[in-house]
Design a protein around this nucleic acid. Structure first.
Length: 279
DNA sequence: AAGAGAAACAACCGCCAAGCC
DNA sequence: TGGCTTGGCGGTTGTTTCTCT
């Protein structure tokens, strides 16, 4: 007998998340935490599998997510970390506070890989050409304009490359971010920390978007929750790399350090000798 | 202005490892 | 100790948006 499927397919919704679902998920996590992803959708009344909820939370709804374009610094970090770690996206993401493995993976495949290996891009495009008709054939019903929303926020709020942003700030980033955003909605927030300013700008800039008004209220509601609640659920203790304490970072950190001390730029793919900003 | 192709990225799938019973 | 459950990860797909012709 094989393992149980991660979720029963019957009756569970798939595809893009709606703002309402996001709201439910965030509210539930804020009030109950996410100790059991599998049970969470049932408890929250979501017709999603736990895996989907977890992914949505980690990649999109977590308050410490930094959205928007990657800075040159970040891209160079990814390149160097990829040289060091390979396709261990989660390990790379752990060293880029606010970035998710999925996001980094996407950036790698869409930007960085082709930059480093133009021939790979050609192969990729050839493959895609052959595949395209089948993909285009399927049209989904009930389109949700979530991505447009993201694009708006991303474009309206280019990522700040704050010099003060440091790895050690990661632990407090999420909470200060949440409070900063909450303050922002309360027409205060002039004292937001440097790390919080990143998200703050994302939120405020989004106000220009008509479509964002749904999420506007959504965030104002969810982010204005008491900090204690947020602390309870969002952030487990992180180590110096923004990684949960006790995670596998140890040996990798060691090798990263070795790499750094050894120069780490011994290949010609880099545009120049670049330091890792976060480590 | 319209269509085609490319790019971007959210979401899904399947596998693996750790933890629990 | 072995089986089962669950969380997490990396690869891949599919849809939307952008850009070019």
């Amino acid at each position: 007998m094989g393992r149980a499927p991660c979720c029963e397919k019957m009756g569970l919704k798939r595809g893009p998340w709606t703002p309402e679902e996001d709201k439910i998920l965030v509210a539930h996590i804020h009030s109950h935490g996410h100790s059991n992803w599998r049970a969470l959708p049932k408890q929250a009344g979501l017709l999603r599998c736990g895996k989907s909820c977890r992914l949505r939370w980690i990649n999109y709804l977590r308050p410490d997510i930094k959205r928007g374009n990657f800075t040159d610094e970040e891209e160079q970090s990814i390149i160097q970390l990829h040289q060091l770690l390979g396709n261990r996206w989660s390990a790379i993401a752990a060293r880029l506070p606010g970035r998710t493995d999925n996001e980094i993976k996407n950036v790698w495949h869409t930007h960085l890989k082709k930059r480093l290996d133009p021939s790979a891009q050609e192969r990729h495009q050839e493959a895609k050409k052959r595949k395209k008709p089948a993909a285009a054939a399927r049209k989904r019903e009930g389109k949700v304009k979530m991505r447009k929303l993201d694009a708006l926020t991303a474009k309206a709020a280019p990522v700040l490359s704050s010099p003060e942003r440091s790895v050690s700030s990661t632990l407090t980033e999420s909470t200060s971010t949440a409070s900063a955003a909450a303050e922002q909605h309360g027409n205060s927030g002039s004292s937001a920390s440097a790390s919080a300013s990143v998200k703050e700008e994302c939120f405020t800039s989004s106000e220009e978007s008509e479509e964002f008004q749904i999420d506007e209220s959504f965030w104002s509601e969810t982010l204005s929750m008491p900090l204690d609640d947020i602390n309870d659920v969002c952030m487990e203790p992180h180590d110096a790399f923004g990684k949960p304490a006790g995670a596998d970072g140890g040996d990798m950190d060691y090798w990263l350090k070795v790499f750094m001390e050894g120069g780490g730029d011994d290949d010609d793919n880099n545009d120049g000798a670049l330091d890792l900003p976060q480590v």
